[in-house]
Simulated assay, not measured.
Amino acid sequence: MKPLITIVLYALITANLAYGNEALRSWNDTHSKQQIISFVEAVTIKESKDFVPIPERIAVFDNDGTLWVEQPAYTQLIFAMDRVKEMAGEHPHWKNTHPFKAVLEDDHQALVDSGAKGIMQLVMATHSGMNTEEFSSAVETWVKKTKDSRFGQKYPDLVYQPMLELLEYLRDNGFKIYIVSGGGVEFMRTFAEKVYGIPPEQVIGSSVKTQFEIVNGVPQLKRLPEIFHFDDKEGKPIAIQTFIGRRPILAFGNSDGDLQMLQWTAAGKHKSFCGLVHHTDAEREYAYDRESHVGKLDKAWKEADEKGWVLVDMKKEWKHVFSFDKQ
């Protein structure tokens, strides 16, 4: 006869497995889904040797390419490019000055050739010189009206349905979820709560310096054309320690920019889960990895293979990519 504790543990695991299968309904029953459910079981069932108390169940997710699309260009860069075109009348010299000239002429190759420095110039010119409320309003207006050129959908609709289900599953199992992204923190905070159910105080990203000032008797925070924190690569674990103060036990990314975040998560004292979304579905989304200029996945892929991290094959493992592509 089996001991009572064994029977109870088996019942709990079986119930949790069934719930996981129901919650992750857009995931095919493959290795990745099984690994996710097994991990959640291990850290949430009190009788498990790997049980983690609720306050320490921290999960971190990259945004671009992990929770929503990042091809053919990062969404925030597209926002910056649209802002350049809107603001060009106030800056006539942009017509002859790169990278602004490349944007105004829709010369994508010239923009790519301008590299990180050129992109930073665009961001600084279009994201600063206003207060935080003005910037948020500009982003909200753009997000509400702008549609992606390929899918004809607004960007909040280009979030990955399987990842939304994963966020929900983790929340239901006591996880506190943070976005830790290279994208601008104020940009993401305008939509993160509505789209992902993640409140603004749980969004970490790149940021510009701000300055407190009184304008007509009203306190404001003015955005300055200077980087405060670049939340990519080694900047991610630094930001996690600075703004969260706890090491995550689950981390999900999709590119080499997320590698250090996954390494930091895997090195903790608790059982951990590290996952990467591998873009393999050119028909329903995009297919890219080692040679891509956006969301390059090379070093992180190699380390995932070496350390047994979960590599999610989008084409094979997701029944649906977006909510609108459900059959």
Rank of each mutant, 00 (worst) to 15 (best):
residue 136 S to N: 15
residue 325 D to W: 00
residue 60 V to D: 03
residue 144 K to T: 15
residue 113 D to I: 02
residue 73 A to T: 06
residue 146 T to C: 11
residue 23 A to G: 03
residue 313 D to C: 07
residue 30 T to H: 10
residue 60 V to Q: 07
residue 262 L to C: 05
residue 287 A to T: 12
residue 1 M to I: 04
residue 254 N to L: 07
residue 221 L to Q: 14
residue 228 F to S: 11
residue 88 A to W: 04
residue 93 H to R: 08
residue 306 E to H: 03
residue 11 A to C: 08
residue 28 N to A: 06
residue 276 L to Q: 00
residue 289 D to S: 14
residue 144 K to Y: 14
residue 196 Y to R: 02
residue 290 R to W: 08
residue 65 G to E: 11
residue 8 V to L: 09
residue 146 T to G: 09
residue 71 Q to P: 00
residue 3 P to H: 06
residue 29 D to V: 13
residue 199 P to G: 06
residue 169 Y to G: 08
residue 243 F to H: 10
residue 9 L to C: 00
residue 48 S to W: 06
residue 104 L to D: 04
residue 218 V to I: 10
residue 324 F to P: 01
residue 33 K to T: 05
residue 84 V to P: 03
residue 182 G to W: 02
residue 255 S to D: 09
residue 37 I to E: 02
residue 242 T to N: 09
residue 206 S to G: 05
residue 149 S to I: 15
residue 73 A to N: 12
residue 38 S to G: 13
residue 96 N to M: 06
residue 181 S to G: 02
residue 68 W to Y: 04
residue 181 S to Q: 04
residue 189 R to Q: 15
residue 101 K to Q: 08
residue 66 T to M: 04
residue 300 A to Q: 03
residue 76 Q to W: 04
residue 5 I to D: 12
residue 175 F to L: 08
residue 290 R to V: 08
residue 218 V to H: 10
residue 54 I to M: 15
residue 157 D to G: 10
